[in-house]
């Protein structure tokens, strides 16, 4: 009776091929996006006004022959399609061209700046995500109370503060020192020249340098994770399955941790991964204020010239990392939310 009259049971068969198909589709989509990024990266920096050869030689008077020689060296005298062909060929070998200003391979430049940036911005993003989600959960669970109002208003105030201003303020208060307060943290760079040898002292030294820029970043960006988590959890709080969980005799915090938060976290996954993708971009303002030798500072310097191969390189690296992280988010979402798997 049950089988014939009650429809809507599941077909579990075919779950594995469907998952494989899904993964293949997502990876294929990501590959297409990466290809478009490469094309866009090439043409975007070719349509910009200005002659690269002139930019390179702005500081010194040069003859027409020297200019022609420069153009030839950088391949700028070739027709556009030939340049594009060479660009794609080089890209496939991991060669992003040569920087005008540094006169070194872009890949090498980006490579040595990547570490410091991922260290600083990565740490700050992870801390901001954890802090934001935790505060957002607390605020929503006690929504309407003083706790909620306090967290929300502090978070929003910090979010609206200009990053460089907050950075400079912290730099002055804790780096330089105000009045009787001595400078507690270094003001620039990521390491001191006079560090005793050994791994531990060097790690501590870098950590010491990282405190101020990291605090600045966390203070500014945690609010968005908090607000998204808060509204997402508020939406879940009216849900009937929470009444079920309470009726089962669960403690309030078990209801929150075991039932409400796992559902409320789902909408934050995309946001968090987009931010992790942006980590590579560095934080231009913070890195500049604290002279942190990362990709943000490199981009800032490249923009001032402008150093086209370097900008093109950072553009491609950044865009690719966002695409990769976004793809990861979509794959992870499928693991976290059984409804997407159906």
């Amino acid at each position: 009776m049950t089988d014939t009259l009650e429809h809507g049971g599941t077909r579990r068969s075919g779950t594995v091929p469907r998952t494989l198909g899904f993964v293949a589709r997502k990876l294929g989509g990501a590959a297409v996006s990466l290809g478009l990024v490469a094309v866009l990266g090439f043409f975007l920096f070719r349509v910009l006004p200005g002659d690269p050869a002139r930019t390179m030689t702005r500081s010194a008077p040069v003859s027409a022959e020297q200019l022609a020689q420069l153009r030839h060296r950088f391949g700028l005298d070739q027709p556009l399609y030939a340049q594009f062909r060479d660009f794609l060929g080089n890209l496939a070998r991991g060669d992003l061209g040569t920087s005008y200003t540094y006169n070194r391979p872009v890949t090498e430049l980006i490579g040595e700046r990547l570490g410091p940036t991922v260290l600083l911005v990565g740490t700050a993003t992870v801390l901001a995500v954890l802090l934001g989600l935790w505060l957002g959960t607390r605020a929503a669970w006690r929504h309407g109370t003083a706790t909620d109002r306090w967290f929300t208003s502090v978070g929003l105030t910090l979010w609206s503060v200009p990053t460089f201003w907050l950075g400079l303020l912290l730099l002055m208060a804790f780096g330089v020192g105000v009045g009787p307060l001595p400078g507690l943290f270094p003001v620039a760079g990521m390491s001191s020249p006079d560090v005793p040898p050994g791994v531990l002292p060097r790690v501590l030294d870098v950590a010491h340098h990282m405190v101020l820029p990291c605090v600045t970043l966390v203070a500014v960006i945690h609010a968005q994770f908090m607000m998204v988590m808060r509204s997402s959890l508020l939406e879940e709080m009216g849900a009937e399955y929470l009444t079920t969980a309470r009726a089962k005799g669960l403690r309030d915090d078990a209801v929150r941790r075991g039932h409400a938060v796992p559902n409320a976290l789902l909408p934050t996954v995309t946001l968090v991964f987009l931010h992790l993708g942006m980590v590579v971009a560095g934080a231009i303002t913070v890195e500049t204020v604290f002279s942190w030798p990362g990709l943000g500072l490199l981009t800032y310097e490249a923009l001032r010239v402008p150093d086209l191969p370097l900008l093109q390189g950072t553009f491609i690296v950044l865009a690719s990392s966002v695409i990769v992280m976004n793809t990861l988010a979509e794959l992870l979402y499928r693991v976290l939310d059984p409804r997407v798997r159906a």
């Binding site: 849900a239 009937e240 399955y241 079920t244 089962k248 005799g249 796992p262 789902l266 976290l336």
Partner: peptide, 29 residues
């Protein structure tokens, strides 16, 4: 709660947690 008196709620679509399995939810109490 649940050991003395339990509730069968209306519209079980919403009364069950969408991201946990049937086993989890029955075993929880």
């Amino acid at each position: 709660r649940w050991a003395g008196a339990s509730v069968v709620f209306q519209g079980a679509m919403h009364a069950l947690n969408p991201v946990r399995t049937v086993f989890d939810q029955i075993a929880e109490p």
